[in-house]
Amino acid sequence: MAKVLVIGEQLNGALSAATPKVVACAQALNPESIDVALFGAGDLAGAAEAAAKFAGVGKVLTVSNPANEHPLAAVLAPQIEALISEGGYTHVLASSSTTGKDVLPRVAAKLGVTQVTDIMAVHGANSFTRPTYAGNALVTVEVPEGQIVLGTVRGASWQAAEEGGSGAVESRELGVELPSHTRFVSQETSKSDRPDLQTAPKVVSGGRGVGSEENFKVIFSLADKLGAAVGASRAAVDAGYVPNEMQVGQTGKIIAPELYVAVGISGAIQHLAGIKDAGTIVAINKDEEAPIFEIADVGLVGDLFEVLPALEKELS
């Protein structure tokens, strides 16, 4: 039976919203046990307690080490390898976050296996569905029998795991040598009080049609009215209207809000790859032929600079 190690993630001691979804994927394997590993530099108790509450979690293994202050793949990989060989796991799952995507293939190569990227569905211990071609072809793959399974989990395909467990928290010292060839320098994050793009139930995104950084305030204003997070197309990010972490799509964030409002976005397949699992898609675009209307549940043809103020007024 499966023994799963989930590579959890935390930020400033709080469990990341991506981890409960990875645990949900682990639960779908009907495993004998699920352990969650957490790496960091400071106090990991809060994140560990949160992780221990998920149904089926046996142990939360915390690895606190100054070297783990920022998740660097080259530093994390040997520690994950150590946990794997200690625990005799059959499956190791991480989020398809930039951290998971960075580190897990490095571990997989050391173990001599190919990783299953972006798991959307589980059909037994060795069989998984994953997206290819920006989500336009879904492939079901089988991992060779007897081989350890390493996979990243596509957040938008999974609901957060059910709680109801009471796992034990154990802190671990791993006597592994860590490389010094990779060093953290700095991080730039734009602070925002708005909901998190990846987990918000409502998202308003702006595209090239918005026209400038200055104009983007109409998007923020509508989002605030709706209590929504703000996203953007690649074109809007490339043009410098908003920072990169707001990009939605094949190479940005893949999200599944209940409501997605696309404003001044044409609907390129790479953008649509990021919103396929959204509940209701609303498109506002002045070009009635824009491909976004082919998939939008509700479309409104019009100039966004007229539509958005009117919409806000109606909402008040």
Partner: peptide, 9 residues
């Protein structure tokens, strides 16, 4: 380019 923004290493 990371989920939180930009990281320099």
């Amino acid at each position: 380019e990371v989920d939180l923004g930009l990281e320099t290493i």
